[in-house]
Simulated scan of single mutants.
Amino acid sequence: MITLTETAALAEFCARAGEAPYVTVDTEFLRERTYYSKLCLIQLAFPGDGETDAVLVDPLVGGLDLAPLYELFRDPGVVKVFHAARQDLEIFAIEGDTIPAPLFDTQIAAMVCGFGEQVGYETLVRKIAKGQVDKSSRFTDWSRRPLSDAQKRYALADVTHLRVVYEHLAAELERSGRTPWVEEELDVLRDPATYRVEPREAWRRLKTRNPSPRSLAIARELAAFREEYAQVNNVPRTRVFKDDALLELVGSKPKDLDELGKSRLLLREARKGDIAEGILKAVAVGQAAPREDLPAPPKQKARDQINGALADLLRVLLKAKAEKAGVAQKLIASASDLDDIASGTRDGAWAHGWRGEVFGTDALRLCEGKIALACKGQDVRIVPLG
């Protein structure tokens, strides 16, 4: 098991990988005590069965420059293969200002190829590579050195088996003509905006109890302050204050330290110093926000706006279409999408591209009364009307 700790050795490996059609990539990181992920290990492999075709890269070694790796990531002739790539890509986008391309995500590909929703790496290794992954090192501290042999074996298995999984899925997509389907799904992962958290938009993740514009303005300012503080100090946002404490502050609207100190949910550290000052300022700014700057309350679908019978039919249609296509239902449309359609929405991601071909077109025809559904045995059939 080779661990690269010098820039020259990494450059030599990346040069050889640059001659291969693809390279598999994975990372090990920690994020429990920081806002940004702490990169602890990088695993790389390209086609072959030799010991030098799969390596570990130790980014915690002083003096190691990852520039050769980022150059490989930008090489248009080498496909960069990940499984469930979102968090790995976030690390490289933030630390190296680079999003690997061309890109392939085996989790997305597996969902398109009929392996179910959110299929795990171990499942694909077992079903496709006929191998096993030792999970005993999964939750170890990857920042501690030296790494054990068990940790190294576990880490390397994440990219060596991935070669077999990738080749199988890529061939299946080519055979079925669904490679463009996966490319559509990868657009979000390729977009740099996916990995940027805008503090002024952070409030949208909150489950607010009071949707009044003024309360939302206070929530917006508190969430923005929390996000900015967490980013600057590289601490988890929950270490600043948690969502329940934020919502309590929206309701209590403290004007000074004395009122702030009466909070039941605020951490002790947040009742003084920079955090306390930031909270009081955010509340004041939210209360003073001009009317034209107040956030609009999110639109809520009333239950009586949803055609329940139509929603049930859409679920039956989605299940039948997903099974026939061999694609995970969740990848086509969510339960919320179905409720939207049943309440009158006639556009969404489900209506375009491959989703439209598989489900969206017939979903709209069902809404318009142009088709009906019929069952024969276990089969659900579409019956044209009119």
Results as ranks from 00 to 15, higher is better:
Val119Ser: 03
Phe29Trp: 11
Glu95Trp: 14
Ala230Glu: 01
Ala109Val: 00
Thr238Trp: 14
Ser136Asn: 10
Leu64Ser: 02
Gln118Arg: 13
Trp350Ala: 07
Tyr36Val: 00
Thr98Lys: 05
Cys375Phe: 15
Arg196Tyr: 11
Pro59Ser: 04
Leu280Arg: 01
Arg381Ile: 09
Leu64Cys: 02
Ala217Glu: 00
Phe92Ala: 05
Leu310Trp: 04
Cys14Arg: 00
Arg239Gln: 12
Lys272Thr: 14
Arg153Leu: 14
Trp203Asp: 06
Asp293Glu: 14
Trp181Phe: 15
Phe73Thr: 01
Val182Lys: 03
Asp256Val: 00
Asp340Trp: 12
Asn233Cys: 09
Met1Glu: 11
Ala85Thr: 12
Arg196Met: 09
Trp350Asp: 06
Trp350Cys: 08
Arg178Pro: 07
Asp362Gly: 04
Ala217Arg: 02
Glu269Asp: 15
Ala311Leu: 08
Lys324Thr: 09
Phe359Gln: 07
Ala349Met: 13
Val112Asn: 02
Ala109Cys: 01
Leu266Asn: 06
Trp203Gly: 07
Leu66Ser: 02
Gly50Arg: 13
Ala328Ser: 10
Ala224Tyr: 00
Gln300Asn: 13
Asp187Ile: 15
Glu228Ala: 05
Glu248Ala: 08
Gly356Leu: 10
Arg138Pro: 06
Lys80Tyr: 03
Ala84Tyr: 11
Gly278His: 05
Thr179Ile: 13
Leu66Gly: 03
Ile218Asp: 10
Ala170Arg: 12
Leu331Gly: 00
Asp347Tyr: 14
Ser252Met: 10
Asn233Gly: 09
Leu338Lys: 04
Asp304Cys: 10
Lys130Pro: 04
Ser148Met: 05
Pro297Tyr: 02
Val283His: 06
Arg16Gln: 11
Asp258Glu: 14
Ala296Asp: 14
Val125Pro: 08
Arg365Met: 03
Leu265Val: 10
Glu185Lys: 11
Ile332Phe: 00
Asn307Met: 04
Thr345Tyr: 13
Gln287Met: 15
Leu147Met: 07
Asp293Phe: 10
Ile371Ala: 01
Asp26Lys: 11
Glu172Trp: 09
Arg196Glu: 13
Val188Ser: 15
Val235Ala: 13
Asp26Ala: 12
Leu314Glu: 00
Pro146Glu: 07
Lys324Asp: 10
Gly131Ser: 02
